[in-house]
Design a protein around this nucleic acid. Structure first.
Lengths: 176, 176
DNA sequence: GTGGATTTACTCGGATATATTATGTCCGAGTCTAGAGGG
DNA sequence: CCCTCTAGACTCGGACATAATATATCCGAGTAAATCCAC
């Protein structure tokens, strides 16, 4: 029951990317510097977010990452699932069937009550994360955080964001 | 974001122990056999439950484990925390302070909003687990499960439970 | 036959290997930019 | 002076080591029961 550090990094990066102008991008190296992380390792997690269609990556010089959709439509659940995987934390191994007495499969049509209870709790967890939109995180930061911190972060974004020419994915042109 | 298999084993064992008569016990080896688990490894988790005061262990021949308190007062949260540890799954590394720009500590008196959101979700998770009493699990099993499964499990308990002479911990006689 | 000391067998508990996962690092494919050369 | 071609540098992406954790195992300490012996 431990989440990897990548989750924290991914959310912070997404929050930073929510503050860029238009379709500008920020390079992974810049974000790694901003949070004191290993650049190569952060790329791994950013890549997971890109695969999950949460971020978009622009290659080449002046490239980087940007949000694939508005921050209002990105939740913490999206990010957590992208980084940690979509499988539930509790995996029922059906050990109730592993005993010495072999019973017919029809005796186990009812789902394991323990699994039901654990998955119910996990649904509550995911529901709470689904309520937390990235835009809410950013808004709360803008209103509650220390002005010095906000100034520093905005300056960092201003300094490292790089405008792009193409539009930010006009409804997936040549995907499927 | 994955729970160890020990959680599943621990809950199943606790549920089985909820079905014993009076202060009787069941040995760890018997429960390992019932669920097809490695006896030595299951002992590790049962030991965690004992340390957490959820189970009581009786050494010597005819010894074993029993619940330390009624099943109505044991929740899935108790078991999960005992096995997986009490620390929250999301650990804020305060990477917002790890950037190149060193700000005064007074700029970070406000807690990290991301941490707040993650911990809120985790509180929802734990609240749901705290609602699930072990007695509820057992009751749901008794009413919903297949009669053959119930018969087999009751027979197993009847065959492996062993009466004890001493009373089940009369308010902790010589603890502190 | 009975009481007690002793041996015995069974239990849990912790210390010790192994497998799996998470973490961290490195190198290669791709792409846009900048500059040199020719028209 | 302008256009084109080429070389370069910077980006992300995936393949490769290392560290931490979870899993599995083994051996020892402790205890209650059963046994054996003396009375």
């Amino acid at each position: 029951m431990k989440l990897g550090e990548g989750v924290e990094a991914a959310i912070h990066c997404a929050a930073m990317l929510a503050g860029v102008d238009g379709n500008s991008t920020i390079s992974g190296a810049a974000m790694a510097e901003a949070f004191g992380l290993s650049p190569s390792y952060l790329l791994k997690h950013l890549n997971q977010l890109t695969t999950a269609r949460i971020l978009e990556s622009v290659p080449g010089p002046a490239g980087g990452y940007r949000l694939a959709r508005p921050a209002e439509r990105i939740t913490l659940l999206d990010i957590v699932l992208a980084v940690e995987g979509r499988e539930p934390a509790f995996r029922c191994g059906e050990i109730r069937q592993r005993g010495p007495v072999k019973l017919d499969a029809s005796a186990y049509v009812q789902p394991c009550g323990i699994n039901v209870a654990m998955l119910k709790a996990e649904r509550a967890y995911r529901a709470a994360l689904a309520e937390a939109k990235l835009s809410d995180i950013v808004a709360a930061y803008q209103s509650d955080a220390d002005p010095r911190s906000i100034a520093v972060n905005c300056a960092f974004v201003e300094r490292h964001q790089r405008p792009q020419k193409v539009q930010p994915s006009p409804a997936q042109p040549s995907k499927a």
